[in-house]
Design a protein around this nucleic acid. Structure first.
Lengths: 210, 210
DNA sequence: TGTACATCAGTGAACGCGCGTTCACTGATGTAC
DNA sequence: TGTACATCAGTGAACGCGCGTTCACTGATGTAC
């Protein structure tokens, strides 16, 4: 069996990602330690560096997996819903649910910063795309006249706004939105934007900022 | 002169805050070092600890000052503008301008985390309030029937959304909103929300999320 | 299938260093007379 | 105003330690015959 080494290697990789995922989920990214992860994964400290370039690369893998989970959740939530404004609400709601259910993993998505010199690899950046696509599709239905590019940008704006609302509330850095109200605020908010989008471009289009 | 010591102390404090501010503005919070700050401020390393409990407390002072600058900018921008929807636009625009002009200081406001055990002191938390007040006031004019509490929450939501749009774009973590579009996206966005708010509560109010 | 040798994944002790914080000391400020 | 003593702000060398990463070693896997 010529693939024995390859298999062990893949197995170790998987165990490390799993261990890191569990550690981050339980204690947060800031408390992730190479020693803890390797111990949990049942390998020596140095083992990590035979499989990943460094700890950052391991975290990138965890984050990609997290994005995969989010994607699966949203796909499931959208199942069978066709009305575009409804879809947007479901996406926002699904995103909130995911953030609540996986707080630390979700935070790690945004807290993890590579050293200033390093770029995130393409395979990881691509994982971000699906989210924007999910949002752009119903927006396109609501705004058939918008260009691809405008839709992408509008989807990004919408995502950023929803993300902002959820993250400020969960971090409770400012005096936060009460937990019970978060869901309805989000719903109102997306409803308003969807209605606005459906009504077509408003006078805001022509305003020149001074 | 009995206050000589007191004066020197206040002077040292001010020099340290000023030095830390400049360091953060130039290199970002993540690269702030006690040694650099004390050297810039012209005191010994240990001097910092005669005036502040630790480095975190110094950063809190820098952040409070930054919030003070933001407040002054927004007050100036609002000067003479009475129309509430217009005010909201100005606030969003002013916030963007401030973030662009003071990127690292602005980031420090959100990046700085105290150790899990420590709470932010009240004097610092109060500094956050004015922003929400600024937003709540025009919202109140647009929605005279809303309660104080609802206005506060809605203001928080609006702030969080605007902040999210700006910060995701500036961090360029996801493929960002092109710089040239950010301003108009923000403007459209706030315009839409202001119009929605003015139109009164929508059907979204009654939707129960499943 | 079995033996001898070669390779390299995996080991874990040791390295290295960055950096916040402390603490024994000293010189400037304050007090008493 | 001046002198003697007391205090304490400020000094900076040393501490301490957390933790990512390395590297000389070894034992499991692969290859040749």
């Amino acid at each position: 069996m010529a693939g024995r080494r390859e298999m062990k290697r893949e197995d170790l990789k998987a165990r490390l990602i799993e261990a890191a995922t569990r550690r981050i989920a339980e204690n947060g990214l800031a408390n992730l330690r190479a020693r803890d992860v390797t111990q949990d994964a049942g390998c020596a400290l140095g083992g990590l560096y035979t499989v990943f370039r460094d700890l950052d690369e391991l975290v990138l893998h965890v984050n990609s997996a997290t994005l995969g989970l989010l994607e699966a959740d949203l796909v499931a939530a959208l199942e069978g819903r066709e009305e575009p404004a409804q879809q947007l609400r479901i996406l926002a709601h699904g995103y909130l649910e995911f953030a609540l259910a996986n707080r630390n993993l979700w935070s790690a998505l945004f807290d993890h910063r590579l050293p200033d010199t390093v770029e995130a690899p393409a395979w990881h950046l691509e994982k971000h795309m699906f989210l924007i696509q999910f949002i752009a599709r119903p927006l396109a239905t609501l705004n058939p006249q918008m260009s691809e590019e405008d839709l992408r940008i509008r989807a990004l704006t919408l995502f950023a706004a929803v993300h902002g609302i959820i993250s400020i509330s969960l971090e409770a850095r400012f005096v936060g939105i009460p937990a019970g109200r978060l869901e309805s605020e989000l719903d109102d908010f997306v409803g308003l934007l969807a209605a606005g989008a459906a009504a077509g471009r408003t006078e805001a289009d022509d305003v020149q900022t001074p």
